[in-house]
């Protein structure tokens, strides 16, 4: 049952959960746990608190699922809950930072790829550090989560043009950093 569910669209899974199929929610957790943990690391910077954060976010999403109106995608809706949870977190450890870690599965990466990744990470961490604190998370949502400008604006409430200009500068710096590595 769950193996089949893993290929279903988010909205279908939400309908199933609302119909009382609790197991369908586990597919959504598996699908978004990496993003939630990453955001948790960004806010709290340690594994235990990141996991508590992810758990908190998923439970909030579950209890409030009837409030998901489908106006934005489920991933945007969930990320908005995570963002608000992170921003309002009382034990937040300083400013939001991109995680500095090896990929969970780096077995298939060659030295050049690891070097590109390291340069990308350094460049984006610098870009985040240069921004006012509240905008740092926008870069992670764009570069790490792969979200669109409109969706980031929906999550954070910042104007699209503000996000665009921060991403523009960060991407220009990233391109220049990679020019030295690759080209």
């Amino acid at each position: 049952m769950i193996q089949d569910d893993s290929a279903l669209a988010d909205e279908k899974l939400v309908s199933r959960v609302l119909d009382g199929d609790r197991e369908a929610f586990s597919v959504l957790i598996k699908r978004y746990q990496a993003r939630m943990l990453r955001l948790g690391y960004g806010f709290y910077k340690n594994q235990d608190e990141a996991e508590d954060f992810a758990q908190d976010v998923f439970l909030k999403a579950y209890t409030g699922l009837a409030g998901f109106k489908g106006k934005s995608s489920f991933s945007t809706w969930l990320t908005k809950i995570a963002y608000n949870t992170g921003i309002n977190g009382k034990k937040k450890s300083g400013r939001y930072e991109a995680l500095e870690a090896e990929p969970a599965d780096s077995r298939n990466l060659g030295p050049e790829e690891l070097s590109i990744r390291k340069d990308s990470l350094e460049s984006l961490r610098k870009a985040m550090a240069a921004l006012p604190e509240k905008y740092a998370v926008c870069l992670d949502l764009f570069f790490a989560a792969g979200m669109k400008f409109e969706d980031i604006s929906e999550v954070t409430g910042f104007p699209v043009n503000t996000i665009k200009s921060h991403v523009f500068r960060a991407k220009r710096d990233l391109r220049k950093a990679l020019e030295e590595t690759i080209l």
């Binding site: 746990q33 943990l37 758990q55 990679l178 690759i182």
Partner: peptide
């Protein structure tokens, strides 16, 4: 170069805890 940088940056770097899903499902 930019595409490779983004692809590699986006690799999941947080090892998803095996306990997270069962823990949430139990709650």
């Amino acid at each position: 170069a930019v595409m490779a940088g983004l692809r590699l940056y986006r690799l999941p770097d947080v090892c998803c805890s095996a306990n997270l899903v069962p823990k949430i499902m139990a709650m």
